[in-house]
């Protein structure tokens, strides 16, 4: 293998930052969920890269568990988005501030 593990981890860091930017900057609840997926995948990439480096399976197991959890999160998150859309028109997180103090 000629591509060093550093490159994969650096890519993971870049993707993670992009996802974080999406979460922080976008107001559409759907896009926020998509951005969270990007962040989770960035984490997965790092896990898998380290797993390869050390030649052990633990990182892959983690990655698969993260996938399952991400899938669950998507189901619940999208369920909330759909329920929310029944309750009110907009899906703008800036409008959903009922829980303010």
């Amino acid at each position: 293998m000629t591509v060093d593990v550093e490159w994969f981890v650096a890519l993971s860091a870049v993707l993670f930052s992009i996802g974080a930017a999406g979460v922080l900057m976008r107001r559409n609840a759907l896009v926020v969920l998509l951005s969270i997926e990007i962040m989770l995948n960035a984490g997965n990439l790092a896990l898998v890269a380290f797993s390869r480096t050390h030649g052990v399976h633990d990182g892959q197991i983690f990655a698969i568990v993260v996938m399952a959890i991400a899938a669950s999160e998507v189901v619940v998150g999208l369920g909330i988005v759909v329920a929310l859309s029944h309750l009110r028109r907009e899906l703008d997180t800036d409008e959903l501030t009922e829980l303010h103090g």
């Binding site: 060093d4 593990v5 650096a10 860091a13 974080a20 050390h54």
Partner: peptide, 18 residues
């Protein structure tokens, strides 16, 4: 965040893959 993390990755010395 991106700069910091990439910088850290480049600066650190990862072991070579088996």
């Amino acid at each position: 965040l991106a700069t910091l993390l990439v910088g850290v990755v480049i600066a650190s010395n990862f072991p070579n893959a088996v």
